[in-house]
């Protein structure tokens, strides 16, 4: 199940968020070697983890096995502040567009090879389900260009924001990817499961975009 954590319900997710910071540290610092994010306490948190961030946690039997963070593009976000060299056009700024960052799946829950794992596809489905019910219809992504084919196959309508460039030794391209009901249908067919992935916790904020 994908759990959405925002400023409003963060107190109920103290333990899960704690696990999420540690998962981020393991994946981005220890595995990917993004050493400027390293922290002595093993919790990867940055300035964007503020009251405006929306965290999506994949939780299985009380353990956080996957994570991603959504940032509103109506405020400064990673592409405009940290990765601006990837953006050669006017960066998106809209309540209907959010930035997808810090996508991380626990090592034991990844698929062999480079396929989208069940946890990974649940996280991606979580974005589309959340987006469709919240008035969000596109995400900004900084990604390895290998993801582009996958997004097109999943019926995302992709717009390039720049050409690929190496970031920390890995080819990276910034895109905006729009989605609709067809994307959700396709994701569910790929997963072989048409049930919602979002947990129906009380008080989950809806209609984030006005």
């Amino acid at each position: 199940m994908i759990h959405i954590v925002t400023a409003e319900n963060t107190s109920r997710y103290a333990d899960a968020l704690e696990q999420a910071w540690r998962l981020r540290h393991r994946v981005f610092v220890e595995e990917k070697g993004w050493s400027d994010l390293a922290r002595p306490d093993g919790r990867e948190i940055d300035g964007f983890d503020d009251a405006h961030a929306l965290h999506m946690l994949a939780i299985e039997a009380g353990t956080v096995v996957g994570y991603q963070r959504m940032l509103p593009t109506t405020r400064p976000y990673l592409l405009t502040e940290v990765l601006s060299e990837l953006c050669e056009v006017d960066p998106p700024r809209s309540p209907h567009v959010w930035e997808w960052t810090r996508y991380a799946v626990e090592r034991g829950h990844r698929e062999r090879g480079r396929i989208l794992s069940p946890v990974g596809s649940a996280l991606l489905t979580g974005i589309v389900e959340w987006g469709l019910e919240s008035g969000v219809d596109a995400i900004v992504i900084e990604m390895n260009p290998l993801w582009l084919l996958r997004l097109v196959q999943l019926h995302f309508r992709v717009t390039p924001l720049g050409l690929p460039r190496p970031i920390a030794g890995e080819e990276t391209v910034a895109v905006s990817a729009a989605f609709d009901e067809r994307t959700l249908t396709r994701l569910r067919a790929t997963r072989g499961d048409s049930a919602s992935v979002l947990s129906t916790q009380p008080g989950r904020p809806l209609r984030l975009a006005s």
């Binding site: 698929e111 090879g113 480079r114 396929i115 989208l116 260009p145 290998l146 582009l148 084919l149 996958r150 196959q153 999943l154 390039p160 050409l163 690929p164 460039r165 391209v173 790929t190």
Partner: peptide, 30 residues
């Protein structure tokens, strides 16, 4: 390329003579 179901694929551009700048390579990649 790698498809959604994990199959490796390839896309080739051919010519008698091909002169590509790094930007053009990036564009052809996309």
């Amino acid at each position: 390329l790698v498809t959604l179901d994990g199959r490796v694929a390839g896309f080739s551009f051919g010519a008698e003579r091909l002169d590509l700048s790094p930007e053009l390579r990036g564009m052809l990649h996309l």
